[in-house]
Simulated assay, not measured.
Amino acid sequence: MPQKLIISAALTGVLANRTQCEGIPYTAEEIAEEGRRAIEAGASILHIHARQDNGMPAYDVESYRKIDEAVKAKCGNVIINYSTGAIGIPQEERIHHISALQPDMAALNMGSMNYAIYSKKQKQFYHDFVFANPFKDIKYFLEKMNEADCRPEMECFDTGHLNNAMPLIDMGILKPPYQFSMIMGVLGGIPATTENLLHQVKQIPSEAHWQVVGIGRKQWKMVAAAITMGGNFRVGLEDNLYLPNGDMSKSNGECVEKAVEMMRMLDSEPASIEEARAILALPKKENAELS
């Protein structure tokens, strides 16, 4: 019987824009429509950053509220995972939409790191900054997520970030089942290789679920590695604009379709939304705002 694996779709991010890929959604309705396409193709979790209508990042509650309403109208019982990542934004503004909207899950960066994009052709760095996430901020975000009954999806860009969870587990602030994302291929973080993924997975505690998030064109190799290891994975236009054959993707749905094709070649099937909730022990929050 084929194994059931969970596909997350990262719909938009904050950096990619329509000059790079015409399929990047900006408005709440566009994000919801891309979410619908991803679900119909086989995704069960939507990872979402808010955008302004002109494509610039948005961090205010009202922007997330519009997205929340639109996604729930078009995507039903899908598992919603909102971002809390940001550079130079006060910690209260990075988490206030989680407190207000109480999504199923929220991304939580588990450590600080250098972050840059390097151009080999031009031999220079772009988007060169330090992404600061000290323990005091991580602890604050976890406390707010616990108050909102929101599952933290721990985004780990390197092996040390995995270990950063251990004192928070010891304090009782992080509670099982734990949710780890191995983000691989970002300059400043761990390179995207199968060997590194195997090492990462060996570091996580029991009572934990994991997914791999490959950044850039190596994403598809990491998807294949995750499938063969029985792990979950994320695809979508936030992480990679290209299909396995090198063509530009037209939509998040197309990204998920190609992932499902790969799964079926390797005797796996995408978990439905209901199956994903059962696997992750993530009940539907019937009384959450805007349900």
Rank of each mutant, 00 (worst) to 15 (best):
M262K: 14
N240F: 02
Q179I: 10
E257K: 12
P244N: 05
M265I: 12
D247Y: 06
A192V: 06
H199E: 13
G216F: 08
V256K: 03
N196G: 11
P205G: 15
R217T: 12
N164P: 00
M229A: 08
G172I: 10
P176D: 14
Q211T: 10
G160Q: 05
R151D: 02
I227Y: 04
G230S: 04
H161K: 01
D247Q: 14
P152H: 04
M166S: 08
D247V: 01
V260M: 00
M229K: 01
S206A: 14
N146V: 04
D158E: 13
G185K: 05
S251D: 00
A148H: 07
L237H: 01
E257G: 01
P167I: 07
M262E: 10
M154F: 11
K175V: 12
A208H: 15
S268A: 15
F157H: 06
G160L: 07
G230I: 03
C150D: 11
I215N: 08
K202H: 15
M263R: 04
S181Y: 07
D149P: 01
P177C: 12
T228P: 00
L237C: 06
S206Q: 15
A208W: 07
D247H: 10
K250E: 14
G231W: 03
D267G: 10
M166K: 14
N163E: 14
V235N: 02
D158S: 12
L237T: 01
I169S: 04
M182D: 01
G185H: 06
V256H: 04
L241C: 07
I215A: 10
Y178S: 11
K250I: 04
S206Y: 13
H161T: 03
N232H: 13
Q219H: 09
C150G: 12
I215S: 06
F233L: 01
T194I: 10
G188I: 07
G230E: 05
